[in-house]
């Protein structure tokens, strides 16, 4: 792919903007996807920046410690700070890697490879969503909702002293991870549609797997956003 691009560049580096051709050497569909993601990035940025502003308003003193809020793991119980969310992060990163592999196999016109890796990608997405469902259910069960504040015991489980956080924490958490989860869900649905198209040979007939590349961009974007959500809610 790079060589092909390079030859085009070598032939016409000076006049790619002269009309009659795509100046970036990219078809309109992929370009549209990129600019759509840019636009979507502004939505997420608006959410995360609002998060920052509200957190500064509340003040660091009464903002909950992520290590205390997110310290549960299925089956094992409490006392494992950030372990579960690390697992979620790895699942999403791996899913993203699978997607890169699917795109690469698509460039090689290797239908079986695309099916394999796209299948893994979808499984990764479903696994991530399941993890998020568990985490939400756990937090709601512990009393944090859109209208009631987060509470946890300051000295760890069983110590008795209870910390009551601001309402804003839960509201922002559910809104932003929810909006991200909505994107993951959409991604899984779109990936599944593309997966079926791959299986039925739609793209083989078209002689290009561009659609896999386009949904791939969307999928990586979801991963990219998660990196920043992870930073905001779990690391800072």
């Amino acid at each position: 792919m790079t060589t092909a691009t390079n030859t085009v560049q070598a032939n016409s580096e000076s006049n790619v903007w002269e009309g009659g051709q795509a100046p970036f050497g990219v078809k309109y569909g992929k370009l549209m996807m990129w600019y759509f993601l840019l636009s979507d990035a502004f939505t997420f940025a608006a959410f995360l920046i609002s998060y920052g502003a509200i957190r500064f308003t509340v003040g660091q003193d009464i903002w909950p410690e992520p290590n205390r809020v997110f310290d549960a793991f299925p089956v094992l119980g409490h006392g494992y700070p950030l372990l579960f969310v690390s697992l979620m992060t790895f699942i999403l990163i791996l899913s993203s890697v699978f997607m890169v592999r699917a795109v690469q196999e698509g460039h090689q016109m290797n239908k079986k490879g695309v099916i394999l890796w796209l299948g893994f990608t979808i499984l990764g997405g479903i696994a991530f969503l399941s993890c998020q469902a568990w985490e939400w259910a756990h937090l709601i069960h512990n009393g944090m909702t859109m209208t009631s504040p987060i509470t946890y015991e300051i000295g760890g489980h069983g110590s008795g002293a209870v910390f009551v956080g601001p309402l804003a924490f839960g509201q922002l958490f559910f809104t932003i991870t929810g909006f991200h989860g909505f994107h993951v869900t959409t991604g899984v649905v779109i990936n599944t549609i593309v997966f079926l198209n791959v299986v039925f040979g739609t793209y083989e007939k078209k002689k290009n797997y561009d659609m896999v590349e386009k949904v791939g961009l969307y999928w990586h974007f979801v991963d990219l956003v998660w990196v920043f959500v992870f930073l905001g809610f779990y690391l800072l």
Partner: peptide, 25 residues
């Protein structure tokens, strides 16, 4: 339009939540 309307959508979503879900952004 492409860069500014999404921010409005984010603002609207928070307003919808304030109105319908009882949040206080």
């Amino acid at each position: 339009g492409l860069l500014s309307f999404p921010v409005l959508v984010a603002g609207f979503i928070l307003l919808i939540f304030d109105r319908s879900l009882g949040t206080s952004f």
